[in-house]
Design a protein around this nucleic acid. Structure first.
Lengths: 163, 163
DNA sequence: GGCGAAAGGTCAAGGAAGGTCAAACCACAG
DNA sequence: CTGTGGTTTGACCTTCCTTGACCTTTCGCC
């Protein structure tokens, strides 16, 4: 809790909230200075918490006047069906624990899941795959679990309710 | 009685009462230190007393700034909670296709699932177990699927974060 | 064009948590 | 006395974070 990386992550996310902009620019050295850490720490945070999987894109330029630009991918309500389809498509036969977490986080970021729901999803995926002895098999079970969870949470049956 | 595990359990539950929060964070080493025991004892307590079945979710992170977060599940409406508990109890390690249908049927009759939902549940269970080659294994995957579906459909984790 | 300063990028080592698993332990019913 | 189920321990593993040495790109100036 409250690791340096967490603090930097929080700070960047606050920048997004404060400016309300989908796009934030930082200078690596300056940010490192503010947190009294080594500059490459910033890269670590970006690589582990602001990847496309997490719903962000990062651009940068070196040299004089260099910068790092972080863009938040937004998912308008009208696109949620597409995102959902894309997520289901991209779920292969096999899903690692890390990928599963990324999927849940992406859904949360797109406001398809709330924070509490996301926690339940993570716990469900974790607890219901533990019994599988072989890692490769476990990854396949994880994929099946996620798909079934997506189905029951987001799919409507065309069956009409009786009465 | 009054085993070490019991004492640790009590202590964690007191943390919930004291803070009134649905979400408590501990550091494994620190807690182990307080009870003068080995750190893995904490895991034992969590595994035996703070599972989803007991109404809790546990998430954790390793490494520097690691933590263990224990979340309390909000209890669903009491009349249905009993049936749900019963259903979850009865779900063994292994569930045949027939048993799975019976479970869904039962949930539907208890008005916990609508007709459309029930159809989706049956379809999800069927389609997501087809890939499993070995029948005995398939039954275990079916059980895992059903449990995860029950979790995401009926468990509500109230996290205190606004987000 | 060439040079040097000013960014940012990479990578690997070391440290700081928590996780796993199996053996030992203990209480108690049969 | 013995088997059984819950508890306790400890050796060893995996994941995540932090740091620092060294590399690459870009810009301004001569």
């Amino acid at each position: 809790m409250a690791s340096l990386a967490d603090a930097i992550e929080r700070h960047i996310k606050e920048l997004f909230e404060q400016t309300g902009s989908p796009c934030v620019e930082i200078r690596r050295v300056e940010l490192a200075g503010r947190f009294s850490c080594v500059p490459s720490q910033i890269n670590y945070v970006l690589e582990t918490r602001f990847t496309p999987r997490h719903g962000y894109l990062v651009e940068s330029r070196r040299g004089g006047g260099g910068f790092i630009r972080i863009m938040r991918l937004t998912t308008p309500a009208s696109d949620r069906a597409d995102l959902l389809r894309a997520v289901i498509e991209r779920l292969g036969e096999s899903v690692s624990a890390r990928e599963a977490d990324a999927v849940v986080e992406r859904l949360q970021q797109a406001r398809l899941l709330g924070a509490g729901e996301a926690a339940v999803w993570r716990a469900a995926v974790r607890s219901q795959t533990e019994w599988v002895p072989i890692p490769s098999l476990r990854d396949r079970v994880r994929a099946a679990l996620l798909r079934s969870m997506l189905m029951v949470r987001f799919m409507e049956a065309s069956t009409s309710e009786p009465f």
